[in-house]
Simulated assay, not measured.
Amino acid sequence: MGSRRRYLVAYDIRDDKRLRLVYKTMKGYGWRMQYSVFICDLDRMELLSLKTDLGAIIHHAVDSIAMIDLGSPHERGSDCFQFMGAVHGMPDSGPVIL
């Protein structure tokens, strides 16, 4: 394994069936922050697995997924968030069991 990094993953999927599949896949990797936005604490192998799983679902010519590395969950990965309105809390860092 290795050290975990916190990723913000946001997606725009143009087909309802693919959208549902991406959502189900993302639930296995992270915490839903907002509609089509997840927070995931992943090591390198989990990140590769996530990219592989999503890459098999999306239509690469029309769908889009952004994966932003926010740093360590214990450092910048938590400190870089600012909220307005309802705040639902951030996930605790730790292993994600798939």
Rank of each mutant, 00 (worst) to 15 (best):
A56K: 12
V22R: 02
I68R: 03
H88Y: 12
S49R: 10
V9L: 03
K51P: 01
L70S: 05
L8I: 09
D15Q: 09
M84P: 08
L50K: 03
R18G: 00
G77I: 10
W31Y: 11
I13N: 00
A56Y: 11
L47I: 06
L48M: 13
G55E: 04
V9N: 00
P95I: 15
L98H: 12
M33V: 10
Q34I: 12
Q82K: 15
Y29E: 05
L98K: 11
A61L: 14
S64F: 07
R44L: 14
S93I: 11
Q34D: 00
S78D: 05
C40M: 10
R18C: 00
L8T: 14
E46T: 05
R14E: 13
L19S: 04
G77N: 04
Q34A: 04
R5H: 06
R6M: 06
R14A: 13
V87E: 13
Q82L: 15
A86C: 11
Y35W: 09
A61R: 15
M67F: 05
I97W: 14
Q34C: 01
H60W: 14
I57F: 08
A61G: 14
M45E: 10
L70Y: 02
R18T: 02
G89W: 02
V9F: 00
T52V: 12
R32A: 01
K27L: 11
S36N: 06
R5M: 05
R5N: 05
C80G: 06
V9W: 01
K24Y: 11
H88E: 10
R44C: 06
V37P: 07
D12H: 06
H60Q: 14
L42P: 03
E46V: 05
F83R: 11
I97P: 01
S49N: 13
G28N: 14
R44N: 11
D16A: 07
A10Y: 08
C80F: 03
F38K: 08
I65F: 04
W31C: 02
G94L: 03
R6Q: 08
G71V: 02
M33P: 02
D79C: 04
G30C: 06
I57A: 02
V87K: 13
D69Q: 04
R44W: 15
I58L: 03
L50Y: 13
R5A: 07
L98F: 13
M90F: 12
R20D: 10
K24V: 08
R18I: 01
Y11P: 03
L47Q: 01
F81C: 11
R6A: 06
D79N: 14
S3Q: 15
L19Y: 03
L42N: 07
L47C: 00
G55Y: 09
